[in-house]
Nucleic acid binder design. Structure first.
Lengths: 207, 207, 207, 207
DNA sequence: GATGAATGAGATTTCATTCAT
DNA sequence: AATGAATGAAATCTCATTCAT
C-alpha cells in the first residue's frame, strides 16, 4: 500500500470527476447536465461528487479555473516572449486552435458555457486577462511600428479573439470542417486577415 | 367594437408576450427564466402564454424567427445591393452594431441564447444563412479583384462575424463601453481590420 | 358555478392542507413528516402545497399562527374578565385541557413541536404572550390580596403553565389516562395545587 | 505503555464523543445535528463514532442512559431518605435545577430531545420512573398526614415535575434569567407553590 | 483503533404544462 | 380569451452508514 498511490488515487478521483464533467457539459450543455450524468460518466456514485465540490456550479468553476488559467498562462508567456507581434498573434491563434484539437470537449465547455454565458460571473477577471494579453501584443506592435496606431488595441483584441472564438464555435457546433488541414488553414486565415488588417502600410480610412 | 381591433388585441397580446420574453431572457438567461416570469413581465396570467405558444422553447424560437429573419433579410439586401464589397461589409457591421443600440435585450438573447447555445438546434439553417451572405460578399470581392483570392470566403465570414459577435458580447456583458462614439469607433475598427486584412495589395506571408 | 364556492373551495384547499399537516405532524413528528405525507393525507398532489406555502416550515408556522393565536385570544379574554383570580386560573386550565379533548392532534403538534422545540424560533413572542396573561392574573390577585405577594408572578406563570403542559404531554404521549373524568380531575388538581399554593393564608417557610 | 492507559484512552474517546454529542445536540437539536458535527466537535474522524456507537440514535440513547439514570438515582435516594415530604420535594427541585447550572447543555438535550420528543420511545420506562419517585414522596406525605389526601399523587407528580421542567425550558431557551439568585428564587417558588398547594390545612374546594 | 472516501436512499423544492372554469 | 389551481417529473443536495486501508 504505497502512500503515494493513496494521495494520487484521491486526487485522481477529483480529476476523474472534473474530466467527466467536461465531457458531459460538452455533450449536453451545463444546464441540461445532471449531477448524476457526471457521476455516471465518471463511474462513481453521485454523492461522491459532493465530497469534492459543493455544487454543480462549483464543478464548472473548477473546470474553468484549472484549465483556463493554464491557457492564459501559455498565452501570457507568448506575449512576454521576443517574437515580433505578428508572430505572437500567430502563436496565440495556434494555441487556441490546437487546444480544440487536443481537447475539444474542454474547449466546447469553455467557449459555450463559460466565456459567453453568465454562469460564472465571478470568474470574469480571468477572461478579461486573456484579452489583456492580446491587447498588449497590439500595443507593443504599435510601439515598434509594426501595427498601425489608429486602432484601439482593446477593440483589436476583441476582433482577434472573436474571430478565433467564432471558428472554435463553428467546430464545436459541427458547422465547420475540422481536419488537421482545416485547422491549419483557419489559423493562417485568421492571422492573415487580422494581422494584415492591423499592418500599418495600409491606413485605409479614418480613425 | 370593430372586429379588427379584436384581432389586433389578440395579436397584441402575442407581441406583448414575445417582447416580455425578450426582456426576461435577456435579464436572466433562457434556462433561468420561468414561464411565470414572462407572464408577469407581460402582465398576464401564465396560462395565457400557452394559448399563443406551445412551450417555453417555442417562445424562444418565435423570438428568434421574427427578429433574426428581419436582420438576415436586411443583411441579404445589402449583399444584393450594388455597393463595393468593403462598403457592404461596413453596412453589415453597421446593421449588427446598431441593432445592439436599438434593442440590446434582443441582441443579448440572440447572441447568448440562440446563436451560441444549442437551444434552437433546429434553427441552425437561419444562422448559417447569415454567414452565407457575408461569404457571398467576400466571393464577389474576390471576383472583382477587391479581395485577395487566397482566403477561404467561408472562413473569412467567420472571422468577420466573430469579430462583431465578440464586440456585441462585450457590450451585452458590460465589458466594453457602449456610448454612441464607442459603437461608431468599434464599427470602424472592425471594418478597418477585417476589410483591410482582406485587401489584396498586401498578400502577407503564407498562402 | 357560484362565485362563493370558488373562493371557498380555494380557501378550503388551504385549510385542508393545514389540517392534514396537523394530523401528519401529530402522527410522525415534524421532522419525520414528509411533504408528500401531508399531500397524501390531504388527497392532493404535493406540488399543490407549494402554491399555498413556501416551505415545510411555513406550514408549521401557519398551523401555529392560526391556532395558537386563537388560544391566546381566549386566554386573554379570560384574563380581562371580572372573575376572581382563582376562577380565572381555573378557566385557563379548562381552556388548555379541553383543547386536548377537542383537538388532540393539534395540541400534540403545538406542545411537542412548537412550544418546546426551536423549530419556530421567530414565533417566540406569541408563546411569551400566553405566559404574560397568566402573569397578569397573578399580579391582579396580588393586588387584591387573594394571592400572596412574596411570589414572583412570572415564575408563578411558569409553574402554572408548566404543570398544564406536562399533563398535556402526558396525554399526548399516552402516559396518562384521558377519559373525560381524568381530564376533569386533572383540571381540578392543577388548580387546587397551584391556586392553593398561591393563596396567602399559608405563607409557608421561606420568602 | 501500561495496558490500563490503553483501556482508559479508549474509554476516554467514548466519553469524549458523548460529551461532544451533548454539546452539539444542545446547540442544534438532535435532528439537525450531523454525525460529522459531533466528530468535529470531538476532534476525531467521523468514522470513529461507529466504533463506539451503532447509530446516531444510539448516541442519544447513551447520553440519556448514562446521565438520566444518575439523576434518577439521586432523586430516588432522596425519596428513600428520612426527610419530611416537603423537604424531599425541595431537594428534588434543587437537584434538577442545580443540574442546569452544572450542565446546561446536557439538561437542554434531556429536556428538549429526550423527555418530550419521541426520539427515544424505548426509554420511556426510565422517564416514567422519575415521576414515580415524586409520586411516592406524595403518597408518603398523604400517609403521614402532611399532604392532603384528595389529590391524585400521579397527577401531583406531573404538576411538580412539569413546573420544574417549564422553568428549565425557560432557561434553556433563554426566556428566563438564570443567575444564581434567579435559580434559588425559582427553586423556592416552585416548592412554595406546589408544596403549599399540597398542604392539607387548606382543603380549598372539591376533590 | 482511526480515517475519510464512497455509497445511495430519500427529502425538499422547482416549474413547465394541463385543464376546469 | 383568460385565469390560476393542480399536477408530478425531475433535479439538487444531505447525510447516515459502510468499508477498505
Amino acid at each position: 500500500m504505497p502512500a503515494r498511490s493513496d494521495a494520487q488515487a484521491q486526487e485522481g478521483k477529483r480529476r476523474l470527476l472534473l474530466q467527466a464533467a467536461v465531457r458531459v457539459f460538452a455533450r449536453k450543455g451545463y444546464h441540461a447536465s445532471r449531477i448524476s450524468d457526471i457521476a455516471e460518466e465518471a463511474g462513481v456514485a453521485y454523492g461522491l461528487l459532493y465530497h469534492y465540490f459543493d455544487s454543480k456550479e462549483e464543478v464548472l468553476r473548477n473546470v474553468f479555473r484549472e484549465t483556463w488559467r493554464a491557457l492564459i498562462a501559455t498565452i501570457k508567456s507568448v506575449e512576454e516572449g521576443d517574437d515580433p507581434p505578428r508572430e505572437q498573434l500567430r502563436k496565440v491563434a495556434e494555441i487556441l486552435i490546437r487546444s480544440w484539437r487536443r481537447e475539444p470537449d474542454l474547449v466546447r465547455v469553455l467557449v459555450l458555457e463559460v466565456t459567453r454565458s453568465g454562469h460564472l460571473a465571478g470568474e470574469m477577471d480571468e477572461i478579461v486577462a486573456s484579452f489583456a494579453a492580446i491587447q498588449e501584443i497590439v500595443e507593443r506592435g504599435q510601439a515598434d511600428g509594426t501595427i498601425r496606431v489608429d486602432i484601439d488595441p482593446l477593440l483589436a483584441s476583441y476582433v482577434f479573439y472573436g474571430a478565433i472564438d467564432e471558428l472554435l464555435t463553428g467546430w464545436v457546433l459541427g458547422r465547420l470542417p475540422d481536419s488537421d488541414d482545416d485547422l491549419a488553414r483557419a489559423e493562417r486565415t485568421v492571422v492573415e486577415i487580422v494581422a494584415g488588417g492591423l499592418a500599418p502600410e495600409h491606413a485605409g480610412a479614418t480613425a
